[in-house]
Amino acid sequence: MTSPWNALIAVSLLGGFSYAAASASVLLRHRASGARLAAAWSAPTREGARLLVAQRSVVVGSDRALARIGSALLPLAAIMAVLVVPLGAHAISDLSVGVVWFNAMEVLAWAAVWMVGWGSNAPWGVIGANRFLAQGLSYELPHMFALITVAVGANSLQVNQIAAAQHGQLWFALTMPAAFIVYLISIMGFSFWGPFDQSVGRDIVGGAASQLSGVDRLAFCGGRYLLLTVGSAMAVPFFLGGEAGPLLPGWAWLLIKTAAVLAVLVWVGHRMPPIRMERFAEISWMVLLPATIVQALAVSIFVLVGWM
């Protein structure tokens, strides 16, 4: 069963990658604004120190408990999702329904963001919270169909077996491209990152996070990077052949592939403007959802005729 060391290693890796993602994000911002690039590497530390020292605050009449649980729930969900991320040969706990577990943890973000936004008792927070629900309703179904397509292809809901099913043949990213793209979009969806950050958008002065200060803000913003990282890490066994790769040992390939997915997402976050929710909802339901259903059908047929 689980050894605490495995858990610690996994969580430290998660933290390390998240830190790198936050740094890279600051780096891109500094590059855009012509500020000093070298400062980016220490920026998350400095921000962390700032928030640790800062006074906590609440809005009068707000639901403190709700907001605080919400902001702590975000990192908690991300860390719990690490449970099924395969590390080397095995995940911390290779659940037979790993895919479902991952899905469940990621949906906790809905609750967390809504709780923080509503609990803030500020119009910005309330608008942001409801925007996130609308976003969730839009990305979640294509996301689930993408996961199911992968599971059909591997005939398993166990993450390691999904990775193993791609050994010696084409990676799922190539055999099911629509599912892969939708999965990448939905990572940005549930970590409200880049084009999908409308729930904490600048037009609503930070939305759900607008009234957070101090350690609550640290947990919330940190949790967001953790979610982005754990989503990227799961893309590797799902779509990128797990630890398959030449020369280097398997764990090295896992880390390299995770870093690559994460880098792409961070870059996209800076390269693309946000998408307004009412426009995304339509595209998501009318393009992404049918695309993933057709993808699932295609993969089921491949499975039946024995190509997978």
């Binding site: 911002r29 012509g34 403007p273 946000p274």
Partner: peptide, 16 residues
């Protein structure tokens, strides 16, 4: 405008 639209990096370059 870009900043309100949420496109942070583009807004920063515009400022520069």
């Amino acid at each position: 405008f870009l900043s309100v639209a949420g496109w942070r990096s583009a807004a920063m370059t515009g400022r520069l």
